[in-house]
Amino acid sequence: MIEIKNFSKSYSRNTVYENFNLTLNDGEITCILGESGSGKTTLLNAIAKLTEYGGSITNLKCSYIFQQPRLVPNLTVRGNLRLVCKDENKIFQMLEKVELSDKAESYPVQLSGGQAQRVSVARAFLYAGDVILMDEPFSSLDLKLKKRIMDLFFEIWGSDERTAVFVTHDVDEAVCIAKRILVLDRGRIIYDKTANDSPPRGYGEAEALRKELVSVLLGR
């Protein structure tokens, strides 16, 4: 469980969060929706201890799938994965799961955007963290690639079921992936719903949920 208590964060004179509280349940994928500047990434970075903040957040080991893959350019794919896991068998199996066994000795510059993001997903699951954080990891991908990597994520997550917190401004992504959806606006939760069914949902399904979210986002 991730407990966020009295969380406060300001940038210069701009207060993003003030006495913000949230509890995230184990084994669930929680999506945090909101427009740019609503504080989504700030919250994720605070959980990952990448930024200073006021209040308290449960101390956890985090995996992080960034918007850009952030692979070390002078290390091969295998070398990048070895940074987080020294078990060669696990690396081998994970490379097979993400369908990049033939790219193990390639450098990041030799990979496409989708391939690099798959390495990033592999890295996140190889790391023995308590939670997976994802900051708009599919935003730079086209629709077909997005679906492919989302399916891949679920395939791996299905056997892992780690707590995941996923940030996006894309309603369809939230509807596809999340069990629980929060909408943030200027550091406050304006919508919080846990679905009865479980993800993944097909792209375009769960129309009612989608309409509800759109009306919340537009109705601010």
């Binding site: 992080y64 952030r70 940074l83 890295r123």
Partner: peptide, 18 residues
């Protein structure tokens, strides 16, 4: 990259040499 190394607790030796 340094942020990624922070999140994944990459060790000092790996940071320096890799």
């Amino acid at each position: 990259i340094t942020q990624m190394a922070d999140v994944y607790s990459v060790g000092k030796r790996d940071r320096l040499f890799k």
